[in-house]
């Protein structure tokens, strides 16, 4: 393959990457160190106030003091995204495995069903949860049917947010997990039983290790967008406590502090990149081990 062909052949991909990924990241980075405009917006410059603000803010005594509030928001977001990922993982594995056991025709239909929600606007899907979880909604009726107290609102709680986030993101988990589980050789599971492995051992020593790439890939696909979720915290969680996504959104809206919003976005980006690096190193180690 000629050098010129390699360059020009890859050029569209590179151009796309540079235009839609690298340049925007640099713009965000530049805004995060620019000077804040009085009523929002910004002036180009170099000013690290936005980053200092993550740790130190003006308190109600007008003195600059260490304030963990933004660290708490970041921690809360990480904890939440982890929870969403774990729940998705636990629900996806059996589902994906079950799909992989169906006939070829059924598999196609089921995989299609998993992707079906993507055809509907995200806002509409989140709104539908408002109806399900709202006053006198489906969730409450079921709860009352099983003897729960009436008038119990499920909306605007952490649980509502969690349900919404798992619901929105779980297809991103099911698909890669399914892809991994589907390739699994049933003979290996049989072999583990022949060697007196229990069902649990088969799951732990055979199924999970062999489908690990899918589990990890799915986890990243769920974890990363969960970090930046805005709709679910706002609509289902009631916006009572900020997450990183809503915090960033607020800086560009009500708080009118673009550099700080950009700085938080950079923190978010750093976390995502760290997750990806850890994963890449793990994958590299595995390649070495199997080589």
């Amino acid at each position: 393959m000629s050098k010129a062909f390699r360059f020009w052949g890859l050029f569209p991909a590179w151009a796309l990457m540079v235009l839609t990924l690298i340049i925007p990241v640099f713009i965000v980075a530049a805004v995060s160190v620019s000077e804040r405009g009085a009523y929002g917006g910004f002036d180009w410059g170099f000013d690290l106030t936005a980053y200092r603000q993550i740790l130190f803010t003006l308190g109600w005594t007008d003195e600059l003091e260490f304030d963990p509030k933004y660290l708490i928001i970041i921690g809360r977001t990480l904890a939440y995204a982890t929870g969403v990922t774990l729940i998705s993982l636990i629900l996806s594995l059996p589902l994906a495995y079950w799909i992989s056991l169906q006939s070829a025709r059924m598999k196609l239909i089921l995989v299609y069903l998993v992707t079906l929600p993507f055809w509907v606007s995200m806002i509409v899907r989140v709104y539908s949860w408002l109806i399900i979880l709202g006053n006198d909604g489906l969730a409450e009726r079921i709860y009352v049917f099983f003897g729960g107290a009436d008038g119990q609102g499920f909306l605007f709680t952490w649980g509502a947010m969690l349900v919404g986030m798992v619901y929105s993101h779980i297809p991103l988990m099911i698909l890669p997990v399914y892809a991994a589980v589907e390739k699994l050789d049933p003979a290996l599971i049989e072999a583990s039983h022949d060697l007196y492995g229990s069902r649990w051992t088969a799951l732990r020593r055979v199924i999970i290790p062999l489908s690990a790439p899918g589990l990890i890939g799915g986890s990243i696909l769920v974890f990363v967008p969960s970090l930046g979720a805005v709709l679910e915290p706002m609509l289902l969680g009631g916006g009572r406590q900020l997450m990183m996504g809503t915090l960033i959104q607020n800086q560009f809206g009500g708080s009118r502090d673009w550099p700080f919003g950009a700085a938080i976005a950079m923190v978010l980006l750093t976390i995502v990149v760290l997750v990806l690096i850890v994963n890449a190193r793990r994958a590299a180690r595995q390649m070495e081990a199997s080589a």
Binding site: K69, Y70, Q241, G254, S255, R256
Partner: peptide, 17 residues
């Protein structure tokens, strides 16, 4: 004024933190 607006923002961020 920007100074007054900052105080409004501080109220809101502290409220929703």
């Amino acid at each position: 004024s920007p100074a007054a607006q900052d105080l409004v923002t501080r109220v809101w961020t502290d409220l929703l933190q």
